[in-house]
Design a protein around this nucleic acid. Structure first.
Lengths: 350, 350
DNA sequence: TTGTAAGCGTTATCAG
DNA sequence: CTGATAACGCTTACAA
């Protein structure tokens, strides 16, 4: 496909045929005689002919590629989603191009610009923690770009969406803490305006009120940059630990934040779960190896990627404009481990 | 850039000029009068004109994109490398397309096929654990595709390479274990033929022999698939623990394998470092939070990505064929934590 | 059944 | 200073 790439034209001249004949033969058109076909295909095979996808894109005005926008591929949740996306996309003949925002709105814009200029045929996006305004996405959609949101969605854009049941996930996690004897439960999450924060916070609050525990706004903290910078998280944690009444448990609502919380405890000599219990959203594959093993709310990330991609391809390949959109909500799973259960003396030595 | 994308032709007809004039004005050619330029640029600006990169690629026979092949983006080491790659690539006006092998030779071939057919202008690759034969890469290179290897390189392909000093990294890790009183040190690494296994194993062996410890081949194990499947690793670990003389320390030579080893110990109730000490190659950002905190050999992943990309772009943009290649070796850092140091009684309770 | 020509968006060459 | 034309690789009316 490079310097010496063979083209249809080359085949045509070599065989003394026309470009169109060759093109048709290669696409197995019925209007080409079997012998000619055979001849052409043999030659193409022998010379390892590969159609030039760039020329095709130009002609067909589509690239057979899907753009993905996530904050960080280093985040287990997102890398699992990406694997799900790829598993479907490749089967359906699409390739994916990944763009990272690193939780920055500006980077999101740049990435989006690139992807759309690069003529992706569709977009799968989980917006950055900083993103409050969705006009840029609306405008892309208005220009005809099919978009499907996953995880961090834009409420007011009409399209397919795949999310996890943030409310129930948090509700269960919080309830679990309450049932294990914790009552001053703090919450630390992404930026306040974020879609997932809303759901997760509501689940947390509902669990508290269902158990007649008053909601203390001092215990509810946010990280505007998703805890991508440790300092951001540290500030919030410090605030929490300066309270006259310290929390006895903490519910962390994203992978990055959960790890930051543990790091904070470690560097400040705060022991889990003795001094404070922890439950966090996380899809990391090593949470069971942590000290102590971590109770997590786990999302079906791979599944989410698959579903989002199927939805997207459905829009892309639809003959008429899709008007009715689906809002798919997947269950989150609570995995109970040691970080959220009061230790008995026996366990101390392990 | 989609359905309603404005083109040079549109501008030309709207302004009653020719395509060439518009094209030239947009590229700020000196042969266009200031007024015409102004007019055209104003119109282009107003209508948000963006050159179509696909048309450009077709014309220029290059896509301004770089292909990346790694085993898994979920692996911290590789996601850090990718961030390094992006940091340079975007600055120099290149975009990146990522392909994952999941340690499979077949997938590597498929990905490579895609990337080359997609006309990437250059390739950055760390081969899969299964890859023993490099003919496919040689042939791509012969077709004119610039390639730079990082981390897992192909020895017999002549091009730039960036690796870490695997030998010294392992030597230091092993020496550290020896100096801390361990003598039956096992090694578990990627497939035997892999470039990095060779270096890491040699460092391990040299450290042993420098300290007059005999090399016991029973203690040297390999994971042909890089420990991507836990069962693979479990088998090797079982073999190790079936020995009459069990190892008292283990040196794990990749991120995935290191985590697998810890998981093995955890599920078999083997305590670290009491029952066995552990040092492993890892770039994971949570190794300090593990139980116990993990002593690691850490690679300058981001740096490696940056350097590899600079090298690649140098080849791609060179006016004459590059004949002299560089083999850059970066230092690995040993981070000593608890998993490799015999515990005193005081430490037991934390 | 096969060939010719136009077009996708762009730039380069050559005229004017 | 500006315009017409060809070319990149491919598909597809339309002609033959």
């Amino acid at each position: 496909m490079r310097f010496d790439a063979i083209t249809i034209k080359d085949i045509a001249t070599a065989l003394g045929l026309s470009k169109s004949t060759v093109s048709r033969a290669l696409r197995d058109s019925h209007e080409i005689s079997p012998e000619t076909k055979k001849l052409i295909r043999a030659y193409a095979e022998e010379h390892n002919y590969r159609p030039n996808p760039i020329a095709l894109s130009l002609k067909e005005k589509r690239s057979r590629s899907i753009g993905i926008v996530v904050c960080e591929i280093a985040n287990s949740f997102f890398s699992q989603v990406i694997n799900g996306i790829e598993s479907i996309a490749y089967d359906r003949g699409y390739n994916v191009i990944i763009s990272q925002t690193h939780e920055s709105f500006e980077r999101e814009m740049i990435g989006l610009n690139y992807l759309s200029s690069r003529s992706v045929d569709g977009l799968l996006i989980s917006v950055s923690a900083e993103t409050k305004n969705f006009d840029h996405l609306k405008s892309l959609q208005n220009k005809g770009l099919p978009i499907v949101f996953f995880d961090r969605v834009a409420n007011d854009i009409k399209t397919h969406k795949v999310t996890v049941d943030n409310f129930t996930g948090s509700y269960n996690a919080t309830t679990h803490l309450i049932e294990n004897g914790f009552a001053r439960i703090a919450s630390i999450s992404l930026s306040q305006h974020s879609f997932i924060t809303q759901g997760r916070l509501n689940g947390y609050k509902k669990a508290l009120s269902d158990h007649h525990i008053p909601i203390d706004e001092d215990l509810i903290r946010y990280c505007a940059h998703g805890g991508l910078f440790y300092e951001e998280l540290e500030k919030e944690m410090n605030a929490l630990f300066m309270l006259k009444q310290r929390p006895d448990a903490i519910f962390a609502s994203s992978d990055k934040i959960t790890m930051g919380v543990l790091r904070y405890f470690k560097s400040n000599g705060i022991r889990v779960p003795n001094d404070i219990a922890v439950v966090g959203f996380s899809n990391s594959e090593t949470t069971d190896l942590l000290q102590p093993s971590l109770t997590v709310v786990k999302q079906p990330a791979f599944e989410m990627g698959k579903i989002a991609t199927e939805m997207l391809i459905n829009i892309m390949e639809a003959n008429r404009a899709v008007k009715v959109f689906e809002n798919r909500v997947l269950p989150a799973e609570l995995v109970v481990r040691d970080s959220s259960v009061k230790r008995t003396v026996e366990l101390l030595n392990n």
